[in-house]
Design a protein around this nucleic acid. Structure first.
Lengths: 124, 124
DNA sequence: CTGGATCCAAAATGATACTG
DNA sequence: CAGTATCATTTTGGATCCAG
């Protein structure tokens, strides 16, 4: 249950960090989940995430595109429309990600109560 | 492969964010992994993560303790020694986390080359 | 409609010095 | 040994204006 021994966790050149940094951002995970359902246009994504600024939306999408998790398809219409979709690589990330999300959903209540208990204990 | 429909991803009160925020931090994941092997003392953890500041080590450990993923055991010796260990809850997180780490290790090379290709394409 | 550019506020992290 | 406190710095995110 803890076969981490063989992996490289050197903080500098860490394979894991490249992935975790995506989940770290406030929005990338949500974007991956939205795109898991189906491809979306820029405006759809913005409306789906009501409190994202368009700056962060652009930036998050570029980060995902940069690492090959999401592809960008421009339709040369007027006005222009751009569609984002998961790549095969991005799709393959969904499975381990789903496991994590399931764990989070299952243990959310436990974490919440642990947190409250901790606050109480340290409030003194 | 994408059964996310039923889950709550409201950015504000999102169960998932409580978990992801831990993995987001620069250090918490590494700490979980170290503690997965065996309990560690404060100084051991610091030596194991050469470039962590003791400020961040303390803070990260407190965050993990706060959410019930790690427990803190003080041995009233002189000088004092404090041992950190994974709780059952923390241990249960390791499995989905391991899946993610495995994915990261498997696809690291692909991500790296996608990144380089992207840099090249946008360098023009 | 899509998104680049700029400016600014806030949060995260690091460096250093000090304490029980 | 295991922290706490403070300050400086870096990083991140948001608001706004502009352009193809």
């Amino acid at each position: 249950m803890a076969g981490f021994k063989g992996l490289d966790f050197d903080a500098a050149n860490c394979p894991v960090r490249d992935v975790l940094d995506h989940l770290a951002g406030k929005w990338t995970t949500l974007l991956l989940i939205m795109l898991a359902e189906r491809p979306h246009r820029f405006g759809e994504l913005r409306r789906g995430l009501p409190d994202i600024s368009q700056r962060m939306l652009t930036q998050s999408l570029r980060d995902l595109q940069r690492d090959g998790l999401v592809s960008r398809h421009v339709h040369p219409t007027v006005p222009p429309s751009v569609e984002y979709r998961l790549t095969a690589l991005g799709g393959s990330l969904l499975e381990p990600l789903a496991a994590l999300i399931t764990w989070a959903a299952d243990n959310h209540a436990t974490i919440r109560s642990a947190r409250e208990a901790f606050e109480q204990a340290t409030a003194a």
